[in-house]
Structures are given as C-alpha cells and as structure tokens.
Amino acid sequence: MQALTCNVATPTLFSAEGLVGLIFLLTILMVVGGALIAVQSKWLVRSVAGLALCFTGVAGLYYFLLSPFLAMMQMLIYVGAVSILIAFAIMMVTQAGSDTRHRRKVSALAGPIGISVAMLFFAGFTMLALATPWQQFPQEQEGSTRDLGIALLGPHVLIFELISIVLLMAIIGALVHAQRGRTRGTGA
C-alpha cells in the first residue's frame, strides 16, 4: 500500500479534481466488473455484454490518458464492431447459448488451474508495476491527433499501408471461408 502512494496531490471529494477521481474509480469498476462478467458468466450473450461494458470502461481510461481520439476509436471499433460481430456469431451458432452444459472429466481441472495461473500472472504483474522505479523523461511532443496523423502518413506510412492490406485480406478471406462452408454444407 505504501508503493501505491505515488506523489500526487490528494484532492478533497467536493472539488473538481475529487469528482474526476470519483469518475475514474467508477471507470475502473466498470472495467473490472465487465471483465469478470465476460469470463465468468455461464451464458455467452451475457459475456458479450460484459465485454462491451469492459471496452467502454477502457475507452474511459483512454480519455483519462489524454487521448480522446483513441477513446472514440475504441468505442467505434471495439464496442461498435467487434462486440456486435461476436454477438452475431453467437446468434448464428444456435446451440452456443450456454457454455457449460455437459462437463467432461478431462477439463474438470481447467477451472482451478486457470484461476491459479491467472492469480499468479496478476500478482506478478502487480508487484512488477508497483516495485519498479519508473524513470520519467520530459515529454517533447504532446501527441495530439494532428501529431498522430503526421506520424501515420510520415515516418510510419509503410506500416499503415501494410495494415490496410492485412484488413483487405481479412475481409476477402472471411468471405471466401464462409462461402466455401456454405456450398459444402448444401452439397452434402
């Protein structure tokens, strides 16, 4: 608990900074609760809803990290596209309503082992994050949306083009894959 005091001024509750801190705590609660629902719920539809809640909270955290553009992209891509895509997948695959219908003996150990491994990861990363003396450098640029655009079309234009090719290939590949499955299914 001593390491978590990180030399910040502690605002009172009824000031502007205190309200910002309260909103930050609510955002963290949203992230943690959403993630717990997403991995713990027995019904996959609820787990997708938890995923959307968690991604909304992560967008709020991006807002706290001084980049509203990334928060908007997170809402658009993750909450608006990826969660809806997974929800469509659940609706198309009809029997996927529940996750644990008939449990077999092979994977009965998967829950406890998974919990212990996850606790190990969490404890390790938390200790690493709290114990490391992070060295701070003076910020030379502010990293605004304008800087992002200049960096995307300037020094990193090759990665940008490669990402667009990857996205195009993903779209074509998904179409071809789904089409092939359909013709085989109706032909058999």
Partner: peptide, 8 residues
C-alpha cells in the same frame, strides 16, 4: 481520489 494521475 488522486490515483488517476499515477502510472501504477
């Protein structure tokens, strides 16, 4: 209430 300003 002040932890939104620290990295950890």
């Amino acid at each position: 209430l002040g932890i939104y300003n620290c990295l950890s």
